[in-house]
């Protein structure tokens, strides 16, 4: 699925300015625990999280997460956006809950990033 299709499904709005809309996304990670993200996230994946601090951006950078979706209308600080842009990690906001977003993406055929872990 392309990033564009994913963002349409989650009714997301871009919070950063450079969006590679046609990038392929193969997996989803959903967690507020950055250690879990570091454990399971894969390249070509999107991260759903309720955490909106700079550690989310660092985690995405370390684990090669392709894009970040902040759930339930969480507003990141300007510093978070600045770092996201500097590190080339597109960030979106979605008004929906984690459960709702996971259901939408799963129903659309997306796989969890932890699908073949362990």
């Amino acid at each position: 699925m392309t990033l564009r299709e994913i963002i349409q499904l989650v009714e997301g709005a871009p919070l950063t300015r450079v969006i590679p809309w046609d990038m392929d996304i193969n997996y989803v990670t959903a967690s507020d625990l950055m250690s879990d993200v570091l454990a399971f996230a894969k390249p070509h994946s999107v991260l759903l999280t309720g955490l909106a601090n700079v550690h989310v951006i660092s985690t995405a950078e370390m684990a090669d997460v392709a894009a970040i979706i902040l759930i339930r209308g969480k507003q990141p600080s300007d510093e978070v956006i600045r770092q996201a842009e500097e590190k080339g990690k597109p960030v979106f906001g979605s008004p929906h809950s984690m459960f709702e977003l996971c259901a939408r993406l799963h129903n659309a055929g997306m796989q969890g990033a932890d699908v073949n872990a362990l």
């Binding site: 625990l33 950055m34 250690s35 993200v37 454990a39 999280t49 955490l51 601090n53 989310v56």
Partner: peptide, 15 residues
């Protein structure tokens, strides 16, 4: 609250 401290750090490193 920062998204850490869940006792998974060393486990992740080992992985």
């Amino acid at each position: 609250e920062l998204g850490f401290g869940a006792g998974m750090g060393l486990v992740n490193m080992k992985r």
